[in-house]
Amino acid sequence: MRARALGYVLAAALVALTCAAPGLAHAATPSSADLVEDPTAWDGQTIEFTGEAIGEAMSRGDEVWLHLNDDAYARGTIEEGGPLSGYNSGHAVVVPPQMAERVTVFGDHKHRGDLVRVTGVFSAACSEHGGDMDIHASALAVVERGHDVTDPVATGKLWALAITTGLALLTAGAYLARRRPY
């Protein structure tokens, strides 16, 4: 309850600030967790959101869907040696095609995606997109270019493979020997 009340105060303050000085106002920067924890308070607000572009840009004519993860892995995937730090967390963003073109690397097993910052309006349940929670971006910048990630095989694993293979051959031999005794 306290968090929600705080959210309303924050939202009200934002509105006041935006009305008072539209050119100077700096958009708030809620995390994906903040947004989903209190969607009502953020609904309709212009926010700034930064995250790693994941998967792909899904182009649908005059708009493109991006998914930006603002979790710890956006700064270092497990394959890069980043620590385990919980689930992924992110948000869906709708951007115009000419902005989406700037994003070129998308996060997957072999890539850490571009770190992308968008400014746009958050909807708790967007009426244009079937009630989806989304951000309609009006500005987009690539903060940090993504890159390839390699995942070399550890020598320890090769040893484990050799040992389990040996065991499998041994037991398979024993099995065959017992099935056909002579």
């Binding site: 694993k157 484990a160 493979l161 389990t164 293979t165 065991l167 499998a168 037991t171 398979a172 024993a174």
Partner: peptide, 13 residues
């Protein structure tokens, strides 16, 4: 590969 060999070892064993 390790998982497969472990299954074979346990299964045949």
């Amino acid at each position: 590969g390790i998982g497969l060999m472990a299954c074979l070892a346990v299964g045949f064993g």
